[in-house]
Design a protein around this nucleic acid. Sequence first.
RNA 1: GGGCCUGUAGCCAAGUGGUAAGGCAUGGGACUGCAACUCCCUGAUCGCUGGUUCAAAUCCGGUCGGGCCCUCCA
Length: 460
Amino acid sequence: MKLYNTLTKEVEEFIPHNKNEVTMYTCGPTVYHYAHIGNLRTYIMEDILEKTLNYLGYNVKRCMNITDVGHLTSDSDTGEDKMLKGAKREHKTVMEIAKMYTDAYFSDCQKLNLAKPKIVSPATDNIDNYIEMIEKLIKKEYAYISNGNVYFNVSKLDDYYALTNHKENEMVVGAREGVKEDLGKINQSDFVLWFTKSKFDDQELKWESPWGLGYPGWHIECSCISLKYLGEYLDIHCGGVDNIFPHHTNEIAQTEATIGHKWCSYWVHGEHLNDQSGKMSKSKGEFLTVSLLENKGYDPIAYRFMCLQSHYRNQLMFSYDSLDNSVQALEKLKNKIRNLKEDGEVKDLETFRFKFKEALGNDLNTSLAITVLYDVLKSELNNSSKLALIKEFDTVFSLNLLEEKKLNKDLIENIETLLEKRKQAKIDKNFNLADEIRKEIEDLGVTIKDTREGTIYSLK
RNA sequence: GGGCCUGUAGCCAAGUGGUAAGGCAUGGGACUGCAACUCCCUGAUCGCUGGUUCAAAUCCGGUCGGGCCCUCCA
């Protein structure tokens, strides 16, 4: 298995710290609003990665956080807590909001066939751990207290910018509008570990700490949760590219300062989904959620398919045209598969299996893996063998390729009766009637197809 | 100002030195009472421009265009 590692900027052979056991940490959602499909693109990539590793025989232990607290707009005390903002908007308490959007998030995941990580931990469940870790950092003199907040001192590290090519003196403070310099810091890139002072005194969730009543900075949760559940040697850490700096950079800083050795070997980042105006966001353009797509009549799986046809490290352009494209393609693909009927012994799977593994094993080239699927369909293999391969591939793709939609009994009887009538009409050359009956059947949501063996039907 | 990614047929998109995968759409054909489904056939020299090389979409330089990050973000 080869993976592109942001840390080395190279595609590397993946070697877990502990033989076949893989530890994987993926940054989870901030539950102050619905996830948009751009957010979900990264989770789709992570899902494919996890399933590919499983397919290749690894045992993956994956952990994800749920950010349900104190996600400020910035470390410099400007901006507003997102959870609080969400709560105000919905006239609910912060915890109610968190619950509501956490549920919504997992519901979206389910619709996209995203496996739930073995370990899911809300940020608010681990406050004691953060405090403990921050105390350690202060004791080791990596952290200092200033203006009531606890900061991490990045100048104590040899290589704070390991993940990026940033240089401290070339960075522009306030490159982004609304960001103001925090005068309490020693270095420009120092970040907050614990807040006791914020311009937003109405911050709802606060905890007692050695530094006073306050709440954690927004990088500490991922470090802590990861250490708590996955140990001091992490194999893979994932997230969106926007997390590279500062979030992941800071995670590395505080974690390695705490444990005193290298922490995570492979950093895997997913590129963004863009729309015509650039990066998709919650504040501009159409707010594209899974539910919105569903309301417009799209099967969320078609979006998953769209993502798989591109590479996770390339930006992908969203448009309804390309989603329509994927809808068509997926439908055709499933039709082809539906037409395969078992016909004997399963054999000769290795060639395609190898190609499939090679595609995914090459830094998750899902697009090429999809091509292998089409190659299987066009191959000389018998149907049973094709079906066996498709079933295997779909453990990674998760596109419901073999899904047989269930017809209920009454519906079947109804259709059988109508088909009999239509058959008679055709014999009588009464094609108008035959067409009417076909229309009637289609209105029931069923497609029919005339073949030499008779008429067959399936759910649309 | 600094860092990074990207430009392949109408559209989406693989492909990192040896003369361009795949999908969707289009057009033509087979099948059908018609249709749907399915099957067969159908298209690009890779933004532009210099260079390296026996050989470049692939490497290097320039140029034009699109996008991202630099303390909200997947």
